[in-house]
Design a protein around this nucleic acid. Structure first.
Lengths: 182, 182
DNA sequence: GTATTCATGTAAGACGTTACATGATTCA
DNA sequence: TGAATCATGTAACGTCTTACATGAATAC
């Protein structure tokens, strides 16, 4: 047992909302939870197979057009129990951030390093774009102010991510301003 | 080539400051950069071997006591070039956060979910502890206000991490306060 | 008709964690 | 003298990414 196989819980969590195909699940990692977890289809299809063998999901075949078979996966009672067990237990392990830019920064010796400005500017652009994207998502997914009654968790994490990126962008801006002129 | 092997650059970056043994490097992942990256000795020793085969580091044997041989690793010119090449190229890929708690939150449907308070409180404790630890580190590593002349990058990332955790703790507190009474 | 998207799978290899294994040195 | 720490390594296994592979349906 190397890690914890969180992917299986994400899949179960998504299937708990509605039946989906492997392709749908792959897409979900571009939109919904792409900000928080990443996975490719080459990981998802085998995982679905394993979940079915273990009785946590089942699938039915639907036709798209005349020949193309889609496997629409449903969560089972046992799968739902596994999911809620995972949510209910504690989450005491904070994983390290693994931010490559931060790692590079660590090895910069002085505030006169000629590479600093370009590095900070690049990250400023990237995180500003990400922030804008998240703000757009929040408006798209929760158009009304009152709209967070359902999908409260989704609302929370979007709002959390926006706050986090806002902090990151502001920190980059401040750090850039405090660099010595040259 | 699956990922980018960032571990090799971290090792080179640490050896660029001073010669270290595999054991020292392992320790560094508990203190220095443990907040930003994690690695076990079972990853470090083979990586050192590979770096040596490729000519990026060399080692000399020193004795600790009468029998115990330590391998003290030094970075080579070629290794230093590899390190600075890595630092100098752009870092355009923002990796997903992979925060398991955030993932669990996503699957919470309503703000009346009975598990929410305990979940948020646990994270509040964990992130408060982490914040306190980081603040202590900052004082330990940079005792004087002016002390960030050398190791500027180290100062920056500590300060960045403190800001990030401060935001996280405040967000948890606010979110807890906004939960409906029960 | 042709490019894009839908749809599902496997294979190879790199990365990362846990466990296995051994022995010396230091501190109480 | 016994426990904790120093010190180095390998093995097994799980996760994750990239690439290989195929074919149907849809939009332009």
């Amino acid at each position: 047992m190397a890690q914890k196989n969180k992917l299986q819980f994400i899949i179960l969590g998504l299937l708990n909302q509605q039946p989906l195909t492997g392709y749908d699940l792959t897409k979900a990692f571009d939109n919904e939870i792409g900000e928080f977890w990443q996975a490719q289809h080459s990981q998802i299809y085998p995982q679905l197979k394993r979940l079915e063998e273990q009785g946590y999901v089942t699938h039915e075949i639907t036709l798209s057009g005349e020949k193309l078979e889609k496997k629409l996966y449903h969560i089972t009672t046992s799968g739902s129990e596994l999911l809620h067990g995972w949510i209910s237990v504690g989450t005491p392990d904070l994983t390290a951030t693994k931010d490559e830019f931060i790692l590079k920064l660590y090895f910069i010796q002085t505030n006169h390093d000629p590479r600093l400005t370009a590095m900070l500017n690049e990250q400023f652009q990237l995180h500003s774009d990400k922030l804008a994207h998240l703000q757009e998502r929040l408006i798209t997914v929760f158009p009304k102010q009152t709209g967070a009654k359902q999908h409260y968790g989704h609302y929370l994490i979007l709002q959390h991510a926006i706050g986090r990126e806002t902090y990151y962008v502001n920190w980059l801006k401040t750090t850039l301003q405090e660099l010595p002129a040259n």
